[in-house]
Design a protein around this nucleic acid. Structure first.
Lengths: 411, 411
DNA sequence: AGGCTTTTTTTCGAGCCTCAAAAAAATAGT
DNA sequence: ACTATTTTTTTGAGGCTCGAAAAAAAGCCT
């Protein structure tokens, strides 16, 4: 059960708080930090002195634009880029991408690679992932010791502890404990995250005005995925990454889904479903993977004339609308970000989607629900992984709990 | 954003922790509390000395059954029943019920009343609620000053701050700020809670073994409601009480629901829906309220022979199953408690329900999902309200934050 | 230029809180 | 009656945060 607060936890938490305030605000002064955290100036001063002395933060007088103000000028505090580094690995359909990111969040190196995820045997898939990470870590420009965390993101279902991929549409393989594999291989703590959850994390950092406490990120691609932030925190299932919006039931016993079941939202709104419908194929037809270029061509044709293509997007909108309606019955309406190649065709989807939502419990405020679109999911996923890894370093390594507070008194 | 931890918060939180440990465990000794909270013996000793001196806890040597143990016998700590009292108000269809509960959780007085909620005008409904509370508060046996909190529970949608009823099936009225009304009338802080959420809270206290971190309470009655506990905490919507399982969409454009929309789960599984189907009425027929006795008779007939009655329950099970399937896609499967008059007919519902779930994403572990039934919802709702109010007193009144720590040094 | 004002940051003493260890209390066994 | 065992209380030390005051670092004004 929940445990009492130990006296030494106090400092730990407040350290984490200060780091987090700096990461969020860019270059806040001590006074700003005191204001946002509610702690006293003296506490902030003491903690930031520690953090600077430990090389985690740096003072940067860069706040020049405030030259017009009277009084002692504020000293901006910034994250020391060299304090640590993290590594992100994003595995998606036929594509593997790795990046090294410094503690301040800047990409310092990256590498990408095509590979046939759908047909690769287990050992080979794991081998390629390990190999690309190894290449990046052996880069002579990189101090390998500074890499404090690896965050891997994958399209598919992961477990709720962010250790393993349980199931993924990009490979027939299941239950690959990537986090354990990478940890064992490189001795660096690692996580395995769901791609859509990382998209949501990235949106929260990119545009905290709009995406703060409650919002939904939906991936419209080969499959339909969702990342959900409720009350400021990422929502996950009890055992898995959860939030499998694409596999909510739209029509019981309906169209065949890639997951093998029938009537899922994805079976109407996934790329393959739109394609299948546009080509007047049976709803029972085996799902096929459609390239992004083909999807863009399909959308163009749908815009051009009323026909089966337009009808396919209409049906997709309907499925998404009723799905969102059911979701909104549970969590109340929230802003939605549509991400992925079919988000670029959202103009074709939106009318039917709104019409469907209006028929559901969430529909009371149908007009007020706002949709954003972002056609490119990969940068978002990587950014989310990076922030995930960095905030872990902030909290678990630079504000460690209980023991391991060595080397603190001497410079 | 989240705020730093002040030094004085520490004591406050640990006080709350100790009280909570006592409420949960019954009569724990100081040593037991130290073990469960992770705090040191001396801290527990100091805090419990305070609490005893303030009259919140009492020492009770009642732990006789441990007579066989060596060493200094443990002194059990218990909640002082006279430390405070709370009042619960449960408003359901045509029924109003009030109870006074002492700080230890025992009911000390109660009163119930029939009333025609469906046709009462606004003033009258509010008036009756205020009047019954006033009668209880004026009871000469009750020290009115000790009543620290009123928790009201209602069937319907409440706002997420637990202040107002937004919409309810038991009355055509909407947006009644019951919490504010009661607070203003009696000067006692009050909340307005959703009935199913309170059922879930009650289950958590009644059977913490089974209902702890993740479970679902579903009310099968006139309407279909849900209380959801995820990761140990009650799940609510972003603006409303949320969790409107009954208004997830089962069949787009399907049967007419009491909420005015079509195809909701409730439009197939609510009492009126089962009745409508069993009577071979149209799916567009206006929902009617069916008495509990009629429903029990219907269930008996359905058990007796295969006919439209049995088919009606089958359809209800199907709707519930697909609804749960969609829910499980989002949160992963969890144990379910079925509550309410139709829970007594769960034997008729279960086969179709399981069959439906097996066709959904949650169905992978279809067999392992366990269902409990509890035909009587009212005691659960009251118990939930009581615990809600008591834990509020524990945390906000007996472990107050920041200021208001007067009258502490003198007995 | 020099003094004054304003704002930020640091320093210092006081007050709490928790912890660990020792002491005290209460009981069972010998 | 005495010892062993276990629980509870007491005590002293160390740490943390806070508020107030001092120090620092500018700009403003005469």
């Amino acid at each position: 059960m929940s445990v009492g607060i130990r006296h030494d936890d106090l400092r730990r938490r407040n350290r984490a708080m200060v780091i987090s305030a700096v990461r969020r605000a860019g270059q806040p002064s001590r006074t700003e930090i005191a204001a946002t955290t509610g702690l006293s100036h003296s506490t902030i001063s003491a903690i930031s002195a520690d953090l600077i002395q430990e090389g985690i933060l740096t003072e940067s007088k860069a706040s020049e634009p405030t030259a017009l103000k009277r009084g002692r000028p504020q000293i901006g505090l910034a994250l020391n880029p060299e304090a640590a580094a993290v590594l992100t690995v994003v595995l998606s359909l036929n594509f593997l991408s790795v990046a090294v990111i410094d503690y301040a969040g800047q990409v310092v190196a990256e590498e990408q690679q095509r590979l046939d995820t759908l047909v690769m045997p287990r050992d080979e898939l794991i081998g390629e992932c390990v190999a690309i990470v190894r290449r990046r870590l052996q880069d002579p420009d990189l101090d390998i010791g500074s890499v404090a965390r690896i965050a891997m993101g994958i399209q598919g279902i992961t477990d709720s502890n962010a250790r393993a991929m349980l199931w993924s549409p990009i490979t027939p393989l299941t239950d690959i404990p990537f986090a354990d594999i990478l940890e064992k291989e490189f001795g660096i703590s690692a996580t395995m995250e769901n791609d859509c959850n990382m998209m949501a994390v990235a949106l929260q950092w990119r545009d905290p005005e709009r995406y703060r406490d409650d919002f939904i990120a939906i991936l419209l691609s080969h499959g339909i995925g969702m990342g959900l932030v409720l009350k400021g925190a990422l929502f996950t299932g009890t055992h898995s990454s959860g939030g499998e919006f694409g596999h909510m039931i739209h029509r019981p016993g309906g169209a065949l889904c890639r997951c093998g079941r029938r009537g899922c939202v994805e079976a109407y709104a996934g790329n393959y479903a739109i394609w299948r419908s546009a080509m007047r194929m049976s709803e029972d037809a085996e799902p096929v993977d459609v390239g992004d270029a083909d999807m863009r061509a399909l959308a163009a044709k749908a815009r051009e004339r009323d026909g089966p293509e337009r009808e396919a997007y209409r049906r997709a909108g309907e499925a998404l609308g009723f799905g969102l309606g059911s979701l909104f019955a549970l969590i109340d309406p929230a802003p939605v970000a549509m991400v992925g190649v079919s988000a670029a065709a959202f103009d074709l989807i939106e009318p039917a989607l709104r019409e469907a939502i209006a028929q559901t419990a969430g529909g009371q405020h149908s007009e007020s629900i706002s949709f954003d679109t972002e056609p490119n999911e990969l940068p978002l996923i990587r950014e989310g992984c990076a922030m995930r890894a960095l905030t872990f370093v902030d909290q678990e390594i630079f504000a460690p709990g209980g023991l391991a507070r060595a080397g603190k008194h001497v410079a």
